[in-house]
Amino acid sequence: MERHILVVFPHPDDESFGVSGTLALYAEQGVPITYACLTLGEMGRNMGIPPFANRETLPSIRKKELEDACRVIGIGDLRLLGFRDKTVEFEDEELLADRIHAIIAETNPSLIITFYPGYSVHPDHDACGAAVIRAVERIPSEKRPVVHCVAFAKNCEKEIGKPDIVRNVSAVIDKKIAAIKAHRSQTEGLMKAAAKYGGDAIARFKTERFWIYTW
């Protein structure tokens, strides 16, 4: 059993699509979860269908959606780090690592979940993963928490191999779908399309894949 899980992603909804099944399973076992979300997804292009958000209202709408998703998943401790969408890669790398390291020191997690740097498509994802790795590297190797990374670049299996963990989250699929739907401004269109095509679209949510980061 894990002592405490720290999740670090840059965008509200990263947690729901990628890892909410895994987190819901841990939460049901009573494992405390802290989620450090670097931005509010301020630069998202989806504004709802029909649009109910605009460039200026989107951050507060996404913040509320994120809080709802965390409640569904069982994330009890949400930290909003206040960086800005699409700018994480331009920030001072040491500053980012400082912020994440401080949360690691405070929460003392046995497991950290983030994106695999270099294999996570969006520059914010890669920069987020790299900052987490940099923060963990400051900890002496024998004391480091385990780091599970999400990767989904087209070339990832070719370069970093098959995922080390393939977890079936069917038992909590309702929670996962509800978490994704909580991000309504971003996911309503997608989820309607998924419902229409049925089968495969939902089936792929039932598996979550992780690569264990090794130094």
Binding site: R84, K86, T87, E89, F90, E91, P123
Partner: peptide
């Protein structure tokens, strides 16, 4: 990509 960090915002 280029990002410029302003006092109160960004150029991208």
């Amino acid at each position: 990509r280029v990002g410029l960090k302003l006092d109160l915002g960004w150029v991208y």
